[in-house]
Design a protein around this nucleic acid. Structure first.
Lengths: 157, 157
DNA sequence: CACAATTAAGTTGTGCACAACTCAATGCCT
DNA sequence: AGGCATTGAGTTGTGCACAACTTAATTGTG
């Protein structure tokens, strides 16, 4: 029989311990945000805008829907964000001719040119983590598993 | 000699790979957010508000500054949030008599009563992760190390 | 074909995060 | 004591995330 600390934690204990993972997750996310904010300042991009640009640099022209799919964002977030990117002259938005519901985002020359300016960012971020590639991938895998589990749990409430 | 993918990744490769950790981190954070949103709906709390309540349930009366220290939030975020908690009748805010700059947040009876209602939340979250306690702690440690590294990197820009 | 259901964007409203700022209270220092 | 920097909250403005809703185009079905 086991008389270790015990597998049974009281709700009070959990209430005290709770927040820990999400605290850590939150803190890490914000730390990333701060760093990106600094590194992206010269490019005139916010971190979410940078993520959208990353998607466009990889995939070229894309409908809003697909961008949202890649980033797990809905039109309520993307519509104003894309408007700002368009106002900044980095992308153009055009209604698809074949399906008039769909709007496609496409890089302008300036948007494409920004790519080379952004090229140094990932390396600086990677260096800042202090992790090597294997560790990063491992951490990522754990986080993705976590996300999947949470999504599944949320699905059947 | 090694002719594997190689330790030297081009900036373009990194640009493609980039976002991965922060993507995963972001996704996990949002997945947590969704789940908490559902579980906290009955309590009438948002997730950040719940975090503040957690701190108050643990520490009792606290100055705004200390709450911010626990949660890594500044007054710009906390002031309106605490106002909403006060409007909801869960806390009271009172200027300290000994230092009139400082404002202390204190649980009302309703705020304290909410604690028992919230007691079931952490367990449900923990279950939803699909991780056991050891894995959670391990992940947490990695995330905290990551945060520290990123903070340090941001400090010397 | 007509009409209901679905889909894609966009809009509105709320709340959070953060930078930059104001203001008052306190501490410090000669 | 006088004067100045520091500290703690709060305010303002921008941008993101998300829920709930609207609008218009498309699809599916009887």
């Amino acid at each position: 029989m086991t008389d270790q600390p015990g597998p049974t934690l009281s709700d009070q204990d959990l209430l005290r311990l709770d927040g820990q993972i999400c605290f850590s997750l939150n803190a890490a996310g914000r730390a990333f945000g701060s760093l990106y904010r600094i590194l992206l300042k010269d490019l005139g991009l916010t971190y979410p805008q940078y993520l959208v640009m990353l998607v466009l640099w990889q995939h070229g022209e894309l409908p809003v829907k697909d961008i949202g799919h890649h980033l797990r964002l809905d039109s309520g977030t993307l519509s104003p964000l894309l408007k700002r990117l368009e106002a900044a002259g980095l992308i153009r938005r055009e209604r698809s001719t074949e399906d008039e519901r769909s709007v496609h985002a496409r890089l302008t020359e300036a948007g494409d040119a920004l790519r080379s300016q952004a090229a140094c960012v990932p390396r600086r971020i990677a260096t800042a983590t202090g992790y090597d590639l294997a560790e990063i991938r491992d951490l990522q895998a754990r986080l993705d598993r976590l996300t999947a589990a949470l999504d599944a749990a949320a699905a059947d409430l």
